[in-house]
C-alpha cells in the first residue's frame, strides 16, 4: 500500500512543472498543454485523498473535471485557431491589442 503522501508529492512536482511551462514559454499551444498538466496534477490529488478517506466524491469530481477540461480544450484551441488566422503567429506576446 503506497502512502498517500507520495502521490501528493508527485502531484505537487507535476503542478510546479506545469507552472514553469506557463511562465517560461511563448508558444500558446505549449502554454495550454502546461495548463492541462496542472489540471491532471490536481486530478491526482483528488484521487489520492479519495482513497485516503474512502469516499467516492473525489472520483466523481475528477470525472467532472475531465469533462470540463475536454470542453475547455475544444474552446481554447478554437480561440487559438482564430488568433492564428488574424495574426499568422501563435506567439502569445503578439496578442497585445488591449495592451496600454
Amino acid at each position: 500500500m503506497i502512502p498517500t503522501q507520495w502521490f501528493l508529492i508527485l502531484s505537487a512536482i507535476l503542478f510546479a512543472i506545469g507552472v514553469c511551462g506557463v511562465l517560461t514559454r511563448k508558444n500558446g499551444i505549449t502554454i495550454f498543454m502546461s495548463i492541462e498538466l496542472m489540471v491532471n496534477a490536481v486530478n491526482l490529488t483528488f484521487l489520492a485523498y479519495a482513497r485516503q478517506f474512502h469516499q467516492l466524491h473525489g472520483l466523481i469530481f475528477v470525472f467532472f473535471v475531465m469533462a470540463i477540461a475536454a470542453a475547455e480544450a475544444a474552446v481554447g484551441l478554437a480561440i487559438f485557431i482564430s488568433l492564428f488566422h488574424h495574426r499568422e503567429t501563435i506567439d502569445v506576446d503578439e496578442a497585445n491589442l488591449m495592451h496600454w
Binding site: 469533462a67 470540463i68 475536454a70 470542453a71 475547455e72 475544444a74 474552446v75 484551441l77 478554437a78 480561440i79 485557431i81 482564430s82 488566422h85
Partner: peptide, 15 residues
C-alpha cells in the same frame, strides 16, 4: 456545457 463548447468551437474557428 459540452453542447455550448461544441457550438462555441464551431463558431470561433470559422473564417
Amino acid at each position: 456545457l459540452l453542447l455550448a463548447a461544441i457550438v462555441g468551437a464551431l463558431l470561433l474557428s470559422g473564417r
